[in-house]
């Protein structure tokens, strides 16, 4: 499933505008310790994190994650969004909890 399609399933907002390429989600990964995610998240996962620091974009790039999903409507800094746009990283903002996001991902066969 493409990141944009999954965002639509979640009723979530893509903060980084129209993605420049079609990014497919091949799994889902939850974690808030950036170093842990960097060394454990499988490639092409959608990453659910409450972190909104600029460095999440670097972690997503290095680990080749398909997108970042920020749960619970947490506000994301402008600087983080701008960096993500520069790096072609998709950030999705959802009002749902991480658990609810994962449940929907499961129902979608992710």
């Amino acid at each position: 499933m493409l990141a944009a399609e999954f965002a639509a399933k979640l009723g979530a907002k893509v903060l980084t505008g129209e993605p420049r390429d079609n990014t497919e989600i091949k799994g889902i990964y939850c974690g808030d310790l950036l170093s842990w995610v960097m060394s454990h998240a499988p490639k092409s996962s959608a990453w659910v994190t409450v972190h909104t620091h600029l460095n999440i974009v670097a972690v997503a790039s290095i680990s080749e994650l398909s997108c970042i999903i920020i749960p619970e409507g947490i506000k994301v800094d402008e600087a983080t969004i701008n960096r993500a746009i520069d790096e072609n990283t998709i950030i999705i903002s959802s009002e749902l909890t991480a658990y609810e996001i994962c449940s929907i991902a499961h129902d979608c066969g992710i």
Binding site: S35, M38, S39, A58, S61, I62, E87
Partner: peptide, 11 residues
């Protein structure tokens, strides 16, 4: 420190 190389283009 973990043996992760710096990516100048990112960091």
């Amino acid at each position: 420190l973990p043996a992760i190389q710096n990516r100048k283009d990112i960091f």
